[in-house]
Write a protein that binds this DNA or RNA. Structure first.
Length: 274
DNA sequence: CGGCGGTCCTGTCAGC
DNA sequence: TGCTGACAGGACCGCC
């Protein structure tokens, strides 16, 4: 899925198009994504004005004028596509279509359907099942070496799995986990609890930096990601290690290695990461 | 509580 | 060209 920088980019793109606008019509085109849609989903959204759009972890959080919040997760393959007009032909994976009061059209497209949408009263948001257990935002100043060391302390799992654990720190997915560990010079296999002190400070800084760089670049993307503004031409990031198995490390020139952790691919340089 | 494996679903690509 | 299996950005859930 889009990781934190991609979700941030989608939020910013959606805000440009939707802030202050009304949803004149919403079409829900199937009964469920990852979860069933809430009851009367489309009718509860029709006529609502968008007051704010923000991000929490990898969730898009849309405040509406009646005190409801539309919660959206893009899953692995979800995207928001904005068009000036509603297209004559929809894609088979366009699951929700929003018609906006200025005539534009926003479609939620998600081939794998690991994404989700829910409607929640603003007062119940913090206690929402999917929100309440989330960890620290990595770009929050409170997320620093000390905070990271405290959350990793005593953990026997590999550090790569730990920094992808949304209960500890949010928004770091499979790509940026590998990238941040390479930047920090830490092996993805290292036991999480041993990342303390200077190492933790370095890793926290590296996580912040890889995320910031990607946000600055407009969000990086892979093949089925479409920016919120609907433009194709998506950004090709030059990863340092991700998806570069066998290619030369940009630091030492040695081959990048791949391994499997928690069922997912990890990429790293065995020379520079310890 | 921590840690691990299974699971949801479709699309794409490498290899035969 | 067609088939098959592996793999793809997530994360919840149940089990030990």
């Amino acid at each position: 899925m889009p990781e934190l920088p991609e979700v941030e980019t989608v939020c910013r793109g959606l805000a440009l198009k939707l802030l202050g606008r009304r949803l004149v019509h919403v079409e829900q085109r199937r009964a469920n994504l990852r979860f069933p849609f809430p009851a009367d989903f489309a009718s509860r959204l029709a006529g609502r004005r968008v007051e704010a759009i923000r991000r929490r972890a990898k969730y898009i959080v849309i405040d509406l004028d009646d005190g409801q919040i539309l919660l959206v997760h893009l899953g692995m393959s979800g995207s928001m596509v904005v068009n000036e007009k509603r297209p004559a032909l929809l894609d088979r994976h366009d699951h929700v279509v929003f018609d906006i009061d200025d005539g534009t059209c926003v479609r939620f497209n998600d081939a794998r359907r690991f994404g989700m949408m829910d409607l929640v009263a603003a007062a119940d948001f913090a206690g929402h099942k999917l929100i309440r257990g989330l960890g620290l935002e990595p770009l929050d100043p409170a997320f620093d070496g000390k905070a990271l060391a405290a959350m990793l302390k005593g953990r026997k799992t590999a550090v790569k799995l730990a920094i992808m654990d949304q209960r500890l720190v949010v928004g770091v997915g499979n790509i940026y986990a590998s990238e941040a560990l390479h930047r920090a010079g830490i092996s993805p296999k290292r036991q999480a609890g041993t990342v303390q002190g200077e190492r933790a400070a370095k890793l926290a800084a590296a996580i912040k930096q890889v995320l910031k760089d990607a946000i600055k670049a407009g969000g990086s993307s892979l093949r089925d990601y479409v920016q919120a503004n609907g433009e194709l031409g998506y950004f090709q990031h030059r990863w340092k290690v991700y998806d570069r198995e066998g290619e030369p490390c940009r630091i030492c020139g040695g081959p990048i290695r791949r391994l499997t952790q928690g069922g997912r691919s990890t990429f790293y340089c065995p020379t520079d990461q310890r």
